[in-house]
Each structure stands twice: as C-alpha cells, then as structure tokens.
Design a protein around this nucleic acid. Structure first.
Length: 470
RNA sequence: GUCCCCUUCGUCUAGAGGCCUAGGACAUUACCCUUUCACGGUAGUAACACGGGUUCGAAUCCCGUAGGGGACGCCA
C-alpha cells in the first residue's frame, strides 16, 4: 500500500516553526517511501480562519521547499476542511443512525455550570452524558442540538504509536465529545478522522499535543468500522528556556527565519536533527535525508531550540551555496542598508566578493552587513577602531603606498600584496602596520575580508580614491 | 484535580545488558595557521535526574520518587 501523509495546519496565524518541522517530517516520510504528501487546511473554525493566514502558510511551505501532491481542489490548490462540512455532517448522522452517537441539547451555560461544579469538587472535568440515553421527545423546543459521540463506558482503548509505542487509556477517562456543532459544522476531532479516512491517509504524523486526542479519534474509526492509520506523534519543540516555543522567544514563525537570513536548506537540516537522528550525522543534505528518513529515528523527548547551532548549520550551507544565488538573496538586505538597490555592476562585484564574504557569516544579514562597504561612496564613515588606526604616521604610509599602487600595471591581489610587503621591508615595519590602515581606509572598519583581495575587487581607481579621502 | 507522555555533557543527540575509561555536533577554553575577522586544524572542560530492584554484569530491563511537558471546549 502506498504511503500517504498529510500536513494539516489551521489557518489562524503564521506557519509556526514547530509546524514546519511536522511538515518536513511528513514530506520526508512520503518522499522516502515514494508516496504522497497532502496538504489539508483545517479551516472549520470560521471565526478564526483567514485567507491571509492560508497565504502565509502556503508561502512558508513553498519557501522551505516542502511541496504537496494535492493541488487540484476546485478553485483551491489544497484540501479545505470547511469544504467538506456536508460530508462531516453526513458521517455524524450515520453514527446517530448506527447508535454510536446521539443528539445533546445541553446549553453552553449548562455545561459551563457542570464543569465549574466538577472543578470545585475536584472531579475530572468531563461531559456527564446527560443526554446520552434520553429520548428525542424530551428535547426542548427550538433548541439546536449538537451530535455527541456515544463513547464506550467500560474497557480500554489502545493506540500503537510509531514513536511513543503502545499507549492504553481506560475508556472511563474519555467522555462523549461533540462531533457536530449546533450550527451543523464539525468539530476538529470529528473532521480530522473523516478527512484522514476519506483522503486515504496511511500515516498521521503530527505534534504530540494531539496524543491524548488520538484515543477519542480511534473510537470514531471504530464506530464507523474504518481502518485505523498509523500514528506518529512528534515531541514538541521548546524555546531555549525549556518553555513552549512562542513569540516570547523571538522567532516563532517560519517567515522570521527567512527575514533573519537563514537558508531554507539550513532550516530543513536543523529541524530534521531536532528529535530525529541518524547515528552521528549532523550535516545531512535533503537528498540524503529522503534516503535515510524513517519513523524509527524519531526521539521521544522534547527538544529545545538552539539558535547557536542553527547559526552554525546555516554557516555551513552558506559556504557551499552558489555565489550568485547568495548575492541575489543578500541583495535585498544590502538594499535596506544602503537605501538603494544594487546596480548590475555592483551585483557583479558582490558575486565576486562572495567567496571571501560568506565564510565570515552565519546569515544573509551578516553577509549584507559585512559587504555593504564595497558599495559605499567616499568619504567613508570610519568606526571607532578604524579612526584610531588612522594616525598621522599611518596616513603617511598610506600616501606612500598610494603612490606605488598608482603605478601598478596589474591591480591584482598578489601584486598589491607584494607592493605592501616591499614597502614594509623598506620601512622596517610589520606588514600589519600597512595592511591594517589600508583596511581601515578601504572599508571603514578593522574587520573585513582579506584586504588585498578587497582592493583588487574595488579596482585601482576606487581604491586610490578611498585611500586619498581618509 | 484526573489521565497520558518524557528525563544521557549548557544545547541537539549516539547508545537495543558486556563493544562505555559513555561517542559525535553546537557552544565554551587553549594552542596552531594568519594582514584583521572568520574559515580550517589540534587539544581540553563537560552528562547517564534520584532511590530501589533483576542480573555474573545496567545508561540500557522492572518498580518507586522527583522534575518537565501535554490533554481534559459547540479551538485546532
């Protein structure tokens, strides 16, 4: 049987990084088995679902390179849960007909009072089944009922989870949950089961905050006589402090990572290694991940998000990334710094500078910060350390240097270096006494890529211009 | 409150009863390389939550304790 997974976000906000991890695992698992990965938007909560949110989530998935195989649902390119509401209602009515569900006329106020009382008495908060065995003839007039599951009162329900193992709960712990709301729309609990069944999902891979819901969902499968899929519940991703990852930690949304200059392949690699492992392997290409990924490698305990490690993973992917691609990606960050877009000539310079720039950076933002000096105009703004370096003596040396560079026939890094070395010997000073002031003059900073290469890239005219306008 | 799950260096993890003097990666410290900063290289610090069992032998199996997380909606 072919593997079919699904990623099922609710469009009530952005794509959470934890959701992205779930999406990645679903995608990898499907790819590994040559199956399909479907996207289902859980938009049954009409009050909170928004089209903007759907856009954001789709954008996030696309940016991460996680595609889905169901792109033809009428006017939509994903499966909309709300669009299936008639089907959900139909199944709920079937369950009433076969005796595994019933109408409940209890009002919200009534239920609130019931829970308050249970809480006060220290009892478990559960629906007490007050309409479970009452006849419909007792129903109040004009009241719109909900449909509730008629859950077994005795015995136990066992879920065999591919990650957590076999877990059993007493049925007495589970109450009669609502399947269909008074307005005829399905609850999440009901809709997931119907949709997973209808879509032929073989493996339900999701966050383990859904673990305890699974018992109730299994009861619906059983009530309808449907095959139960394989469940795999992923441990949560926590913030650096061990609390649930949220806005408070700074970067909960996938878009935050794009904005901070991380590469999608780095995010994929980092997320993959959170709660999943393949021996000692750390740097794992997506191709390799597809080959290796399986449910066996998933760990059981929650993982904390570590920005330092993400940075190092990103630095690795920066190093092996194509320079033109990086320049294009970093260009928007540079434009923000400069207040203007790069010209074609500047873009060309940026690409040639990239090999020396990218090994010094962990993110595209750092690349942009570090490379901005290439594109600035004189007079440069010197930072504090650079100013300190540019003493009268240093300026004199630079003047001498400028005179010699003027006459260089080939303005290459090697030629510039030889010139500097020759000058350092003549003046009996260390190479640093020349190179550092030169760096300050050309970049405005004491930190930069190798300075002779920088000078060569800047070209003779611009280099001399910068030296002479200090 | 009730139920469910989890627990190896600071962090992510390897570990399937003897291969463990507990390995790798990030972070951190020192040194090397070096025109700066990085990269790279070498070395170091650092963990089996606790208490009982089972066993010739436990990080690994069992029980308990503690700590953490999750679920208990006409939210998803």
């Amino acid at each position: 049987m072919p593997v079919i997974t699904r990623f099922a976000p609710s469009p009530t906000g952005y794509l959470h990084i934890g959701g992205a991890r779930t999406a990645l695992f679903c995608w990898l698992f499907a790819k590994h088995h040559g199956g399909q990965n479907l996207l289902r938007v859980e938009d049954t909560d009409r009050a909170r679902s928004t089209p903007e949110s759907i856009e954001t989530i789709l954008d996030g998935l696309t940016w991460l390179g996680l595609d889905w195989d169901n792109k033809n649902y009428g006017d939509k390119n994903f499966y909309s849960q709300y669009g299936q509401r008639e089907r959900h209602a139909e199944v709920a009515r079937q369950m009433v007909a076969n005796g595994t569900a019933y109408y409940c006329y209890a009002t919200t106020a009534e239920l609130d009072a019931m829970r308050a009382e249970q809480k006060e008495k220290g009892l478990p908060q559960r629906y007490d089944g007050r309409w479970r065995d009452r006849d419909v003839s007792e129903a109040p007039k004009d009241a719109k009922p909900v449909i509730r599951m008629k859950a077994p009162l005795t015995g136990e329900t066992t879920v065999v989870d591919a990650v957590l193992g076999s877990i059993t709960v007493q049925n007495s712990q589970l109450d009669d949950m609502v399947l269909l709301r008074a307005d005829g729309t399905p609850t999440y609990m009901h809709a997931v089961v119907v949709d997973d069944h209808d879509m032929g999902i073989t493996h339900v891979i999701r966050g383990d905050d859904h673990m305890t819901n699974t018992f109730r969902q299994v009861q619906i499968y059983k009530a309808m006589g449907w095959d139960i899929p394989i469940f795999a519940h992923l441990p949560m991703i926590l913030g650096p402090d061990g609390a649930k990852l949220s806005k408070r930690h700074g970067a909960p949304a996938v878009s935050d990572y794009r904005d901070r200059g991380y590469l999608p392949e780095a995010i994929r690699n980092y997320l993959l290694r959170l709660c999943w492992s393949h021996g000692d392997d750390e740097i794992i290409s997506t191709e390799q991940a597809i080959e290796w990924f399986d449910l066996d490698g998933i760990g059981k305990s929650p993982a904390r998000f570590d920005f330092a490690k993400l940075g190092s993973v990103n630095a690795h992917y920066l190093k092996i990334a194509d320079d033109t691609r990086l320049a294009k990606l970093a260009a928007s960050f540079i434009a923000k710094i400069l207040g203007a877009d790069l010209t074609a000539a500047q873009m060309d310079l940026f690409i040639r500078a990239m090999p020396d720039v990218k090994t010094r950076a962990q993110t595209l933002v750092e690349i942009a910060d570090m490379a901005a000096f290439y594109f600035r105009t004189t007079p440069l703004v010197f930072d504090e350390k650079a100013q300190k370096l540019l003493t009268p003596e240093a300026k004199q040396i630079l003047a001498d240097l400028a005179a010699r560079l003027e006459n260089l026939p080939d303005f290459t890094g090697e030629a510039i270096e030889s010139t500097c070395r020759a000058l350092s010997e003549e003046k009996a000073v260390k190479l640093g006494a020349i190179a550092q002031p030169l760096r300050a003059a050309l970049t405005g900073s004491t930190v930069s890529p190798p300075i002779f290469g920088v000078a060569a890239l800047l070209g003779k005219t611009e280099s001399l211009n910068r030296i002479r306008t200090i």
